[in-house]
Design a protein around this nucleic acid. Sequence first.
DNA 1: TATAAATAGGATAAATTTGTCCGAAATAAA
DNA 2: TTTATTTCGGACAAATTTATCCTATTTATA
Lengths: 144, 144
Amino acid sequence: MFSKACEYGIKAAIFIATQSYEGKRVSPKEIAQEIDSPQAFTAKILQALVKNDVVSSVKGAYGGFEIDRNQIASIKLSQIVNAIDGDTIYNGCGLGLHACDEAHPCPVHDKFKAIRTDLKHMLENTSLEELALNIKSGESFLKI
Amino acid sequence: MFSKACEYGIKAAIFIATQSYEGKRVSPKEIAQEIDSPQAFTAKILQALVKNDVVSSVKGAYGGFEIDRNQIASIKLSQIVNAIDGDTIYNGCGLGLHACDEAHPCPVHDKFKAIRTDLKHMLENTSLEELALNIKSGESFLKI
DNA sequence: TATAAATAGGATAAATTTGTCCGAAATAAA
DNA sequence: TTTATTTCGGACAAATTTATCCTATTTATA
């Protein structure tokens, strides 16, 4: 569904959020351990999240990655997915046609429409807050 | 959503079905032209569809690919997707966790569940017949 | 100011997916 | 039986994604 990079990005953002609630900045090393991902690759993905204003970074000693506590609730899954994979998952054609639309649909256009709309809606209405709180409460997990 | 190979496979199967209704066998060359795909790569994908009993092939002169007219209605999209991409799209974990289930869910487990179930249901209930008939009637298109 | 710690970012490598090429095997027709 | 045609299948190549490594830059603290 999503690229590996996007999976790591989502998990990283959730972990950073949980730590930011406690006023802690985290390093790519900690993040990679916590979400079971390759460290250097994760660091690259974090750069993309910083550029797209999903997380913020502080360079130098005592630096690290964090998310403004007051913004966690307003950050949606769609922002993270967009930052890394773009919007082709829920906007592109299911069969890869370049110009697929209502007037010129691919064979599965209508069939996919509902599913993609649901997916889009879900991504746009799922906040980092609820995902992070579920992790903190032990209801869900970032690895294994 | 699907791999390029899977997109080509779905379109190829639809085209073969339309031609099989008219008793015509088709070559990878014709298929590739009709669905706008790389010919040799398409031929490889056709082999996978043959192995998984989605289409049948006839070797030698006057050979080609075809689908038994009486089976077109009973072949579902899910068979094609399974033959090429496997079932990870609607069975694997949305965040790539190896052992994600109800008891040990990833943060998006429940959010994805409905969407993936819908996707699975759609793929299992969409027949090659309806897709091929829509192409024949000009309601949908395989390229551009 | 010097030092240590941390992210940024470019270069590179490995793995996977996508795509090509060519000879072997099969088959219909002359 | 020979020939032309066609799929099969293995080897190879290109492109993309995933992953690593190293240096530059930034910054808090001593």
